[in-house]
Amino acid sequence: MKKTTIIIPCAGKSSRYPTVRPKFLLVNPSGNLVLIDSISKLNLKNCSLIVTILEEHNKKYGIEKMLKKIPNSPKISICILDKPTKSQAETVYKTIKLQKIDGPVFIKDCDNIFGLEQIEEKYNYVATLLLKNAGVINASNKSYALNEGEFIKTIREKEVISDTFCVGGYYFVKASDFIETFEKLNNENPKMELYVSMIIRFLIEKKGMKFKTKNVFEYLDLGTINEWLRFKSTIKTYLVDIDGVLVENSGEYSKPLWGKSKGIKENVKVIQKLYKLNNQIILITSRKESYRETTIKQLKKLDIKFHQLIMNVYHSQRILINDFSNSNPYPSALAINIPRDSKDLIKYLNLEKEWPSNER
């Protein structure tokens, strides 16, 4: 069987992401481009990747060079279109034609993340998820598949006909099936915006072709800028002082000495949970660099996990300065002052309502 070609269409105007750069070039809290994170949970075995972009975006942002510089990313081929297409389906059509793709294709939205254990199959399928497992999404803006037995009976765009919605992954065993159907529907109504779901619906209802649903895992919707900003707001960077916040205040010259003080267990639990929720934890301290190993040993004993440890921070007022923008709205930084050795970090972070006592 030929390699599956994964096509990621990025040749639209990103109208749902106004005032910022094209959505696939935005940077997630992880530091990765939205584009790279969109394929991060896919099993890419026996697959090749093609990203379709606009020439104007390539000239402005240097996308070809940018993608080549990303460390540890899969090899990505670029297909460049000279002007925007009317629809995602047209972008896919032009990509298949320009790249002379035959064999199986998997069409993947660039503005979401989901996992698939295996892409390559011997049958056509639509990647789906039950609404009850989707978290917060705009349900009215999805396409839905209605199953009859093991196959899809019909599929509808922006019409809730079942509790199974399409997450933006479509697998065709033969690229030619997509090409032929697109050409037919486009010729019948050249002004119509064609969705991939419409191509599949025609193949099912008019051609009797079989499509299955295939469940995904760890789905995250980034379809609009509000959804992306909401996602970003759930992941923060916490710069946390050690002495007086996580452990009882200590010093180099007076007892309790650095590395010997007791942990403030209530606050330690808060940091442990923040770490588990994928927040970035950066610990800062005025302890001298020569006390790094002593400090790390103390943190390990208290089971405090962190991403970075900054030593030698002045024992004085600390001021954090951060820029804000449309992609990182104001206020992009906050300061929290907590009384020395207080046990109420959760209160000062305003997490009491968000974290019920039985979940702390």
Rank of each mutant, 00 (worst) to 15 (best):
L98K: 14
K100E: 14
I101T: 00
I101N: 00
D102W: 04
D102L: 06
D102K: 10
G103H: 05
P104D: 07
P104N: 09
P104F: 03
V105A: 01
I107R: 01
I107H: 00
I107V: 08
K108G: 03
D109P: 01
C110H: 09
C110W: 04
N112C: 13
N112W: 02
I113D: 01
F114H: 06
F114L: 07
L116F: 08
L116M: 13
E117D: 15
E120T: 15
E120Y: 13
K122S: 14
Y123W: 12
Y123V: 15
N124P: 07
N124Y: 06
N124W: 05
Y125D: 06
V126A: 07
A127M: 08
T128L: 07
T128I: 10
N133I: 09
N133R: 14
A134Y: 03
N138H: 14
A139Q: 15
S140N: 15
N141P: 08
K142Q: 11
K142T: 05
L146H: 09
G149C: 08
I152A: 01
K153F: 09
T154W: 07
E157P: 08
K158Q: 10
E159L: 11
V160T: 12
I161G: 04
S162H: 03
S162T: 02
S162C: 04
F165A: 03
F165G: 00
F165C: 02
F165Q: 00
C166V: 09
C166Q: 05
C166I: 08
C166T: 09
C166D: 05
V167Y: 01
G168E: 01
Y170A: 07
Y171W: 07
F172R: 05
V173H: 06
K174G: 09
S176N: 13
D177R: 06
F178H: 03
I179P: 02
I179E: 04
I179T: 07
E180K: 12
E180N: 13
E180A: 12
T181K: 03
E183I: 07
E183D: 11
K184T: 12
K184Y: 11
K184S: 10
N186L: 08
N186E: 12
K191T: 14
M192D: 11
M192N: 12
E193S: 14
L194P: 00
L194F: 01
L194E: 00
Y195Q: 14
Y195H: 15
V196P: 04
S197A: 12
M198I: 10
I200W: 02
R201Q: 15
R201Y: 10
R201N: 15
R201F: 09
F202L: 05
L203S: 00
